[in-house]
């Protein structure tokens, strides 16, 4: 195999990897996350805070498990 063919073969093998790129959401580098949202963990608490402050509510439901394996969103 000459150098040109080797180069073409290398590019062909690398293409899917390059096209795929990093998979979002798979790896989170928490050291790069500066400020965080301060979350109320109960609807009762959030509603009381909204009533007292008259602030709108950003509401998220989430399950702290993936395929029932805990410790990950």
């Amino acid at each position: 195999m000459n150098a040109c063919n080797r180069l073409l073969l290398g590019l062909a093998l690398a293409a899917p990897v390059v096209a795929q790129g990093p998979r979002p959401g798979v790896t989170t580098d928490w050291s790069k996350v500066e400020a965080r949202i301060a979350w109320h963990g109960t609807w009762t608490g959030a509603l009381a805070a909204a009533e007292a402050s008259q602030r709108p509510i950003l509401l998220v439901f989430a399950a702290p498990h993936c395929g029932l394996v805990p410790g990950m969103w």
Binding site: I37, W39, G41, A50, L58
Partner: peptide, 9 residues
């Protein structure tokens, strides 16, 4: 500026 609620499903 919001009240942020993250409830656990």
């Amino acid at each position: 500026g919001f009240v942020c609620a993250r409830l656990i499903t």
